[in-house]
Computed example of a mutant assay.
Amino acid sequence: MSFETLHVWKRACSLSCELYQHFSQCTDFGFKDQITRSGLSIPSNIAEGFERGSEKDRKKFLYYAKGSAAELRTQIHIGKQVGFIPVDLADKWYAEVFYIKKMLNTLILQ
């Protein structure tokens, strides 16, 4: 199985692209860097885990992706509170990250 066929990887890539597009004009470079990096880390760790040679490594990188998802949920929450992310968009992204986390849990348990 290739990571490019995984629904969770595709969704995480789409979310990462949305983050980059939304924050392209953001002048708070610290926040912009942190939120885009955590969003990028999710599909990147999924890909790296699936290209590793062992099941143990695959799961380890899926756990890393899950950790990045938790980091991203935190940053979305803070971004919403400080006004960097509109409430409706933050709620949409938060729900998407939560769903991605559930999909990662399923892969980890396989």
Rank of each mutant, 00 (worst) to 15 (best):
A47C: 15
I100C: 05
G30C: 04
L89I: 06
G53Q: 14
L40G: 13
F31Y: 15
Y64Q: 09
S24I: 00
K80T: 01
L109Y: 13
D28I: 08
L72Y: 02
D88G: 00
C17W: 00
C13L: 09
E96F: 03
L107K: 11
K66H: 11
E55H: 10
T36Y: 03
K60Y: 11
Q25R: 01
S38V: 15
R58M: 09
S41C: 13
D88E: 14
K56E: 07
R58V: 00
S38C: 15
V87L: 08
L107G: 07
Q34Y: 08
G67F: 07
N45K: 15
P43T: 02
L40I: 03
L107Q: 12
R73I: 15
L109G: 04
I108C: 09
F23K: 01
K101A: 15
L107P: 02
K92M: 04
Q25W: 00
L19R: 02
A69D: 10
E48N: 12
P43C: 12
I85P: 00
E71L: 11
Y64H: 13
Y20R: 08
N105C: 11
R58A: 04
I108E: 06
S38I: 04
V87R: 07
L15P: 04
V97K: 03
T5C: 01
S16H: 09
V8R: 06
Q21R: 06
K80F: 01
